[in-house]
């Protein structure tokens, strides 16, 4: 949710895919997105001409910038072939803020996500990053974490280059990217997912 960051993350992956010699297609749903609704960006990386929408259960990788929205995406697009990297930091809805609905415990959401697809990697902005930049660099952090996995056909340096080209301010976004990358690398070594 929340619009612009989501769209830019999609563009980062697409530009990186071009660097790697592919013909990406990005599907964006915005319009009313500015007003707090859900935003999904579909990125399809290949050589053939395809439509912008990923079929049900056919996502190779889901990048979740918010747990509830990651679950929403996973319900539609995840299956056993999917890897999910998701931020564990919830953004309340207006109704959950006001107590009309209750945002479920994040641990329940993570459990539901990993039941839909076993390769689930929850990530969290580390203390320093969270303090200095808040959610502003979350996109780069999640992209960094994703770059450490082998779900994408682009190299991590191609994705990093694309972050440098598109994400502002450049320095803090590259720091967040590197941080996310290291975070996931270490967990891969330890073999921990959820």
């Amino acid at each position: 949710m929340g619009g612009q960051g989501n769209l830019v993350s999609g563009r980062v992956l697409a530009e990186a895919a071009v660097l790697a010699g592919y013909r990406p297609v990005i599907g964006e749903t915005f319009g009313a997105s500015r007003r707090g609704g859900t935003v999904f960006t579909h990125v399809r990386i290949g050589i053939d001409e395809v439509g912008p929408l990923i079929p049900a259960g056919a996502a190779s990788l889901i990048l979740g910038l918010e747990p509830m929205e990651s679950l929403r995406a996973a319900i539609s697009f995840a299956s056993k072939i999917t890897t999910i990297v998701l931020s564990t930091s919830p953004v309340q809805t207006l109704q959950s803020l006001s107590g009309q609905t209750k945002y479920p415990p994040v641990s329940d959401v993570l459990e539901a996500v990993s039941a839909l697809c076993p390769a689930t990697y929850p990530v969290e902005l580390s203390g320093a990053l969270r303090q200095t930049s808040g959610r502003l660099v979350l996109n780069s952090f999640v992209l960094g974490a994703a770059a450490a996995l082998d779900s994408l056909p682009m190299s991590s340096s191609q994705i990093r280059e694309s972050v440098a080209n598109l994400m502002l301010p450049k320095d803090s976004n590259l720091a967040a990217f590197d941080n996310g990358f290291k975070d996931l690398e270490q967990r891969k070594l330890r073999g921990t997912k959820v």
Binding site: M68, I75, T93, Q95, A112, L116
Partner: peptide, 16 residues
């Protein structure tokens, strides 16, 4: 798993 997950979802309505 989808059935279970859907029960957890809360809507994110548009707002001012």
């Amino acid at each position: 798993a989808i059935g279970k997950a859907e029960k957890l979802l809360i809507p994110r309505p548009l707002t001012f």
